[in-house]
Each structure stands twice: as C-alpha cells, then as structure tokens.
C-alpha cells in the first residue's frame, strides 16, 4: 500500500469521525470525567483510610497524576468503537471488496484505525492542558521536551500493539460466530495487567515479575511512566524493543490467521 493512499484513508476516516462532533466531545468528556472521577475517590479513600504516605511508591498526588496520564494515554492507544470493524467485514461479507482491492487488508485497516484515532489527539491535548491547569503537577514530573518525544514514541508503539492485538482477535471471526466477547475480555485483561486500573507497582512482587514478561504493561503503564519521568532511558529503550518484538510476533500470528481464515471465508459472489 503506497503512502499516498495510506494517508488518504487516514484523512477520510478522520473526517468521517469528526462528522459527529457533538457525540464525539460529549462521550469524550463524560468518559474522562467518570474514569478519572471514580479512581480519584477510590485513591483518596485509600490514602485516608490506610494512613500511608506512599502506596506502591506513589504519593497521593503522584497517583492522581498517574491516573490522569493513563486515562489520556488510553484515549490514544485503545479504540472501543473499532470493536467489530474487522469481524464485521467477515460476518457481513464486507471483506469481499478488500479481497479485490490492490492493497493489503492489514495496512488498510491500520490506516482506518489511525484515521479514527487521530481526532483523539486533539482530545488528548485539550484535556491534558485542562488537567495541567487544574492539578498541581510537581516540577519533577512536569513533562519536558525529552519526555514528550520519548512518550510519543512509546504511545505510537502502544497504539500499534493495541491494533495488532485487535487484528488477531478479530480474525477469530473466520471460525467463530461472534468475537465481541473475546474483544471485551481482552479489554478486561489489558486494563488490569496493562496498568489502566491500577499502577503495576502496587501489585505484589511475584505478580510484577510475571507482568514484566507480558505485552500488556507496554500499552498504558510504560507510556504513562515515561511521560512522568518514572522510566529511565534504559527502561524506555528496552520497553520499546519489547513492544516492537510483540508487534512483530502478533503480525506473524495475524498473517497465519489471515491465510487460514481467508480460506474459510464465504461471501456473496465467492
């Protein structure tokens, strides 16, 4: 798929997404307020009732900033409404047209996903600025040019990893009647093991050792910690390399699934 076509698809999807602007902003603000509001109350209660100064290496203010960052990073990494896009193509016969397109299916879907997610960069920036104004961010965690560049690379990797996970899971639709449940189950697992529900440092040591070998921590925990100066250059580079490895592994798995699955596929005219 040539880059001109790729970016044309990205632009088309972004414009489609922005055609429902009111819905886009209302759902964004509501989700942000609820996600952040619930954890804010839970962690206020945690610190109040435990009497601890720090929990899992985080102070009360630190953990609030962590969640703020994770919720914002989550906007760029995961895309709930993408749920069904690939599997719908398979179920509803929409895959027919992609089979005759002179472009690969996976790059096309990636371009669509980037386009759908692109308007969220505006949300990320706007809600981020509002958060910066409302929350007192200590100087040692305030973003710098270096951390922003490092975080941008990590978020890009996390986005690709999230897409590859979705791409593989959705291809199960070649064999199963409905993959919605698998997709939701994936979100439950990634939100816990990826650091969206809890910072990974609050888990017991043995659980952290296991999670270090899984790809989920690269989705939310690593980008958030990079942005908050909580990961040094070595950890960042190692995390990025691990992300690239997982993306490659999922890409290979996706190819195998595509080859086998497309043989199972039936649509009108095929």
């Amino acid at each position: 798929m040539n880059s001109r076509l790729f970016w044309k698809v990205v632009s088309l999807e972004a414009r489609t997404k922005m055609s429902y602007r009111v819905e886009f902003w209302i759902s964004a603000v509501a989700a942000f307020a609820a996600d952040f509001g619930v954890v804010w109350f839970v962690w206020m209660a945690m610190f109040r009732e435990s009497g601890a100064e720090t929990i899992g290496g985080w102070t009360r203010d630190g953990i609030i900033i962590y969640y703020l960052t994770v919720v914002l990073v989550g906007k760029l990494v995961r895309y709930r409404e993408f749920t069904g896009a690939i599997s719908h193509d398979i179920y509803e016969g929409g895959l027919n047209r992609y089979l005759v397109f002179p472009v690969g299916y996976m790059p096309y879907k990636l371009a669509q996903r980037i386009g759908l997610q692109a308007p969220r960069i505006v949300q990320f920036a706007l809600l981020g600025v509002i958060a910066l104004l409302l929350v007192d961010i200590p100087a040692e965690t305030a973003p710098t040019i270096t951390t922003i560049v490092m975080a941008a690379a990590t978020i890009a990797m996390a986005f690709l990893l999230s897409f590859m996970l979705d791409y593989c899971i959705h291809q199960v639709a070649f064999w199963a009647d409905n993959v919605w449940s698998l997709d939701v189950a994936k979100w439950f697992v990634t939100s816990l093991l990826g650091g969206f529900m809890l910072p990974l440092s609050v888990f017991p040591g043995w659980a952290q050792d296991i999670m270090a070998w899984l790809p989920f921590r690269l989705l939310f925990d690593l980008p958030a910690r990079v942005l908050l100066h909580r990961a040094d250059a070595a950890e960042w580079a190692l995390g990025l390399a691990a992300g690239v490895f997982w993306c490659a592994a999922l890409w290979a798995a996706g190819r195998v699934l595509w080859r086998r699955g497309s043989l199972e596929y039936t649509g009108v005219g095929i």
Partner: peptide, 22 residues
C-alpha cells in the same frame, strides 16, 4: 469466558488494593 474474566479482574483489583489498606 468474558464474564469469568470480568469477575477475576474485579476480585484481583480489590485483593491488590487491600494489600495496602485494611
């Protein structure tokens, strides 16, 4: 499987929190 996953994640969430508070 999906709901079993949700149950496990929720229970784990509370167990982890209660490692740090009474």
């Amino acid at each position: 499987g999906m709901d079993a996953c949700w149950y496990a994640v929720h229970l784990a969430f509370f167990v982890v929190l209660f490692n740090h508070t009474g």
